[in-house]
Design a protein around this nucleic acid. Structure first.
Length: 202
DNA sequence: TATGCGATATTCT
DNA sequence: GAATATCGCATAG
């Protein structure tokens, strides 16, 4: 049984305001979603940094209507729709006015697993939140949550670690065509709930 | 396990 | 019109 009372909302001053540091920091922390049907939560086990000036980042070409949340003060949600099928969630990662984000790629489910199974239409635990699109689907994350302050404890927030975090590994990022050699993907080594090919999981 | 493919909608060129 | 920070299914080894 998970002791969810041990999870508290992360304060903004606890979050590094540097993209790469934030991505590493978020491994092992909690993602919590409060819905009318109950609470969903999980441990963040995989994330990627898209720092300022990164050609693979959505903020690279400057502020637009669709990417404006990336320019919010660190700790806000940037959510977008990709490939006609998947929502994806980022955490804005720098000071206000600087466009950068951390893409949450995988979560180890803790609370609300039956609801995730219904949303995803599968009972395979390891597949519920493995991959950015699946994660968003399980958690009921969509464009309506874009721009939300994740340090406020609303419908979606970042929480402290539910249990001790393992060793954090790094690798290149997944699914991009620009700046593909940079080691900006972070994950909890040995965790079974991350996405990507096996060679990038150790 | 790895690779390849189509589906799908939004954004930018 | 092209590209895309993906997914699920098919097939081969």
């Amino acid at each position: 049984m998970v002791d969810d009372h041990s999870i508290v909302v992360l304060r903004r001053r606890d979050l590094p305001a540097d993209t790469e540091s934030l991505a590493r920091f978020l491994i092992g922390k909690s993602l919590v979603r409060e819905t009318a049907e109950g609470r969903l939560s999980g441990r963040i086990v995989e994330a990627e940094a898209y720092p300022p000036g990164d050609a693979a980042g959505h903020a690279f070409r400057g502020l637009t209507e669709s990417n404006r949340s990336l320019f919010l003060e660190h700790g806000h949600a940037y959510i977008y729709f990709a490939y006609g099928s998947s929502y994806m969630m980022n955490v804005s990662a720098e000071r206000a006015g600087i466009g950068a984000g951390v893409l949450l790629r995988a979560v180890e489910p803790l609370e609300g697993i039956p609801l995730m199974e219904r949303r995803r239409n599968t009972e395979r635990l390891v597949d519920l939140c493995r991959g950015p699109g699946r994660l968003a689907r399980s958690f009921g994350i969509d464009k309506g949550l874009d721009g939300l302050d994740l340090c406020k404890g609303g419908p979606l927030w970042l929480g402290s670690a539910a249990r001790p975090t393992g060793v954090v590994g790094t690798s290149v990022r997944i699914g991009i065509s620009q700046e593909k050699e940079r080691p900006l993907r972070f994950f909890e080594r040995g965790n079974h709930f991350m996405s990507g090919p096996l060679r990038l999981r150790g």
